[in-house]
């Protein structure tokens, strides 16, 4: 199969030939039949994974070939160039029409994903608060009533109850951590950098990863941007932990003008970013990062290669988010409005 790399596989060749033949027919005869063929070919191209650019190039190559074959100067196609160009355009629009359906579907899916994201964020915040406030309060009450009961216990049982109390404290701690992971109160109270530092320290403790957080940011970010970046860093770190087999991670946050820049680099095994982007199911983590950035008008660049570690570079505009801020009813810690 790899023997003749320069030659296209026969289905692709066949596709080009069919396209050129149908285009030639439409240019010289017009009519519905070649237009239907254009639609069928476009649909075939779409379902077999041709991109929009590939289709545009294919169309122009086919048009050039048809005109070359109709070279004699007296030929009708050459005599009426305006008419020929108009018809070629009609044919092309027909071939691209199935892509219009995909295009609209993606727009719809993106909007739905964005709404879903917002709903999830709200839900997560509710759960985090419930864990922190409700479960936390209950744990305090349990401790108090245990203490009270223990006062009336014989020493032997009391000692065993101390063990139970120690376990309860672990549960309490775990709930606090969980609540923090879900929605760090620190993010609201102290801002992004302390929250990320806390996240890094926690993860480092649990996994042995050496995570360094550097920041030249000053002042507070708009809350929507802060939570999005926090989640992105969280996802990036989760990716590192799951796939990278790294020992060191460096997180760098800076700001230039209106642009916030964040890089997350590791010394792990790396991967082929092109392959991940191309595959039908890109890592959900990367997808999540892209989606969050999309909503912010930000960008993501991935630099990686087998054995070269991975570096994510994220940029996001500071300004836009400040406008969009009003449609996110989020708890403010204090002061403010």
């Amino acid at each position: 199969m790899e023997a003749t790399v320069s030659e296209k596989s026969s289905p692709a060749r066949r596709f080009e030939q069919d396209y050129a033949a149908a285009l030639g027919r439409y240019l010289s005869e017009g009519g519905e039949a070649p237009l239907q063929q254009a639609y069928e070919l476009g649909r075939l191209g779409l379902t077999s994974g041709e991109g929009v650019l590939a289709m545009a190039l294919l169309h122009h190559a086919a048009l050039a070939a048809v005109l070359r074959d109709a070279a004699p100067p007296g030929h009708s196609l050459a005599r009426e160039p305006a008419r020929t160009i108009e018809r070629a355009g009609e044919f092309f629009a027909e071939a691209m029409s199935p892509f219009e359906m995909t295009h609209r579907a993606i727009g719809e899916a993106n909007a739905a994903l964005r709404r879903l994201n917002e709903a999830l964020e709200e839900q997560v915040q509710r759960i985090a608060l419930a864990l922190h406030d409700d479960a936390g309060q209950l744990m305090v009450a349990v401790h108090l009533s245990l203490d009270e009961t223990m006062r009336e216990m014989p020493p032997g049982i009391k000692a065993r109850m101390s063990g139970v109390k120690a376990l309860l404290s672990l549960v309490e701690e775990r709930i606090r951590d969980l609540s923090h992971e879900l929605r760090p109160a620190m993010l609201d109270h102290l801002g992004l950098v302390p929250a990320v530092e806390f996240l890094a320290a926690n993860l480092g403790q649990r996994t042995g990863l050496q995570i360094k957080v550097e920041s030249t940011l000053s002042g507070r970010l708009p809350p929507q941007l802060a939570i999005a970046l926090y989640r992105i860093i969280q996802e990036a770190l989760a990716n590192v932990r799951r796939h990278a087999r790294a020992t060191r991670v460096r997180i760098h946050l800076s700001r230039r003008g209106n642009t916030l820049r964040c890089t997350v680099s590791d010394n792990g095994v790396g991967f082929d970013p092109a392959a991940t982007v191309r595959s039908a199911l890109p890592g959900l983590g990367l997808l999540g990062i892209r989606e969050r950035l999309n909503a912010l008008g930000g960008t993501l660049r991935i630099q990686s290669g087998e054995g070269r570690g991975t570096r994510l570079e994220i940029t996001a505009p500071l300004q836009q988010v400040e406008h969009a801020d009003s449609d996110s009813p989020r708890r403010r810690p204090s002061g403010g409005a």
Partner: peptide
Amino acid sequence: SASRNLGLGLPGVRRI
């Protein structure tokens, strides 16, 4: 179905 992953078929018609 596979082609509807691309937004073709009836869902595609609905959008145009």
